[in-house]
Design a protein around this nucleic acid. Structure first.
Lengths: 243, 243
DNA sequence: AATGGTTCAATGGTCCAACCAATTTCCGCA
DNA sequence: TGCGGAAATTGGTTGGACCATTGAACCATT
């Protein structure tokens, strides 16, 4: 006998509030940036205490769905729908080098799969878009004699978007901040990112040739070079700390 | 000029409460499963209202760090530290078949990478743990003449855990609910999961042999069979709908 | 001795009413 | 018309009260 007989759910006021609120947002067609009703109004309409409303909104705020501005109101920060799946990721000691490597491993996993899917699914328009981003990136590389994080990022984003699965882009976007905190301070590695440059073109070639496994392999190589760069940077940093 | 000059924080009571609480947990050496002080005690010690304490704990609860049980107390669900990095991720939709396939693609990406990392990093103890789960799963398979979702899941979880990167397990854990909603209702495919069975052993063999790329390849094959099963199930379902 | 019922204190969940602090609105004055 | 300050609005905090659930201790029946 396994666990049939799941624990029953008796009270879940604030959860109900969130569901109702999500329904309201959908019905009103509210989008990011728009203001939702006052806490006091919500409390009155839903026939619950303002306190309960606040607990519910606090959860949404913690999840980054909503922003509260004292004296002004509560504003949507993202699209909400009644059937959302929440996936809070927490990285203990997320400010250190190990945390960056952890996110990079996730990125490698997603980048490889997205490239493979992209090789299968990307339409003509999407393919052209990716190549355009690639050209811009290569142009920037030549001009400034080095990797440019912004253009590089846009290239990868285009691949994620063309994978046909929005989850890739969403997960990576959640980690964007982490990547770029280090990206902007390349740990003393002067030619940071140089090694990864050629793989952008090879990945695109595989995608254009409809070669999923090739694309996957090239993406893996690309992230490997970034990882190497970072490790080298960390070693340098440790060295200069000792100085 | 970018966004240096972050907005100053005049009032951030509940944030301060969380920081203080995280410090307390560290100082006391509290781990997952252990009980936190009462809300009333926290309020008194921190010289804030109980309501403020509750707002703070609500945030942690929303982030899955803590579990509150009425009448019992508040318990840690994960390790917390003062310097945590939160990456809350909410996925829109996902209750339909397309959503399931989307999450499955994420799972394939992570499963492949985790298996590869595991082949590199898993220690002796972790290797033994994985094999134990595998034995249990195979035992269940023989006895009940079919895949058992619980034991299967534990096997995969052990691999994620041994990957040395906590993010893998966190992401997958968040999707667990989604997978199992369908797993329990195998869409009419009677021998659902049968096809994936042998790959569990081959994955383990590659990991034990310290063959990352082999493990990655086997993991990809495993998910591919699950995908096929699901697609077959969906086709059956559509067929029976027409009936 | 074991099982089941009762009581009771502890604890999270909810409510209320008031006040504080930041923001926005608006009105009167120059 | 433009501007400065009062007033209304809105989220943030407080304190106190009561409800609902839990779990332990105790008691009664078998």
């Amino acid at each position: 006998m396994t666990d049939l007989l799941p624990p029953i759910q008796t009270t879940a006021r604030d959860d109900a509030v969130l569901k109702a609120l999500a329904g309201f947002v959908r019905q009103e067609g509210l989008g990011p940036g728009e203001k939702l009703p006052t806490e006091r109004i919500l409390a009155e309409r839903l026939k619950v205490s303002r306190n309960t409303v606040r607990e519910a909104l606090t959860r949404w705020e913690g999840l980054g769905l909503v922003e509260r501005r004292q004296g002004s109101g509560t504003y949507l920060k993202a699209a909400v729908s009644p059937d959302m799946l929440h996936m809070p990721l927490t990285l203990a000691g997320g400010n250190d080098f190990a945390g960056l490597m952890a996110t990079l491993e996730i990125r490698r996993a997603l980048e490889a799969e997205a490239a493979a899917l992209c090789a299968i699914r990307a339409g003509k328009a999407e393919l052209a878009e990716i190549e355009r981003k690639l050209d811009v990136m290569e142009e920037a590389f030549q001009t400034r004699a080095g990797m440019s994080s912004e253009e590089d990022w846009e290239f990868h984003q285009a691949i994620f978007r063309a994978s046909g699965n929005p989850l890739f882009e969403q997960i990576i976007a959640a980690m964007y901040e982490m990547f770029h905190r280090f990206w902007e301070h390349p740990l003393g590695v002067r030619d940071f990112g140089h090694a990864s440059f050629p793989y952008h073109r090879t990945i695109f070639n595989c995608i254009a040739a409809r070669d999923p496994e090739g694309a996957r392999a090239e993406a893996l190589k690309l992230i490997a070079t970034v990882e190497d760069d970072l490790k080298r940077g960390a070693a340098n940093l440790k060295l200069s700390d000792r100085r």
